[in-house]
Amino acid sequence: MSDRKGRGRHVRTGTEPVTAYSDLRLRLILSLVFVPLFLAATVVFAIWWAAADAGDTPSPAQLGWLTVGCAVLTVIAAVDLLVVARRIRRRRPPGV
């Protein structure tokens, strides 16, 4: 009995961590959705943080952390978008 099972496009060889394929189209769609979403959230939290007073809930410190967190997520999603776009370009045959 062989370990190779033909599932999907690629034959399972047992070396998937080395040769695994990710769904680039799905990652592209997710990045295109989440970059503007996280960027908008960053802007909203930054404006709210700038207008917050010491007695407000959430506190200015909490708003600051939310702003930084959204900014970090924006950068991660943007970097993933660039990586996915580069991989898609590399996968295309030359001259297309």
Rank of each mutant, 00 (worst) to 15 (best):
L63I: 01
V33Y: 09
V11W: 12
L37D: 11
G55T: 05
L63Y: 00
A40M: 12
S22P: 04
L66I: 01
Y21S: 12
L81Q: 07
I76C: 11
V33G: 06
V75D: 02
A78S: 15
R27A: 15
L32V: 05
L24W: 04
R12H: 10
T19I: 13
A71V: 04
V43Y: 02
T42G: 09
L73V: 05
D80Q: 13
F38C: 08
L63P: 03
G64F: 04
V96R: 14
W49S: 06
I88E: 06
V18E: 15
R87W: 11
P36F: 06
V33P: 02
Q62A: 06
R9W: 12
L32Q: 15
A40Q: 11
A85R: 08
R89W: 08
G8Q: 11
V18L: 15
T15M: 09
P93W: 10
F38L: 07
L39E: 09
W65A: 02
R12T: 15
L81M: 13
A71D: 00
V35W: 03
L28V: 01
K5I: 15
S59M: 00
A20Y: 05
R7Q: 13
T67E: 00
A52M: 01
D23L: 10
D80R: 11
K5M: 13
V44D: 02
G69T: 00
G69P: 03
A40K: 12
T57D: 05
R27K: 13
G55S: 08
R25A: 13
A52R: 00
G8I: 10
V75Y: 05
H10F: 14
L81Y: 07
L32I: 06
V33H: 07
R91F: 11
V35T: 09
P58G: 04
T13E: 06
S31W: 02
A71E: 03
L24Y: 04
L30Q: 10
I29L: 15
R87D: 15
V79Y: 10
A50P: 00
D3R: 09
H10V: 14
Q62R: 06
P60T: 00
R91N: 14
V96E: 15
R27Y: 14
L81W: 06
M1V: 11
T57Q: 02
T57R: 05
R27E: 15
K5W: 15
S2A: 09
F45E: 01
L82R: 12
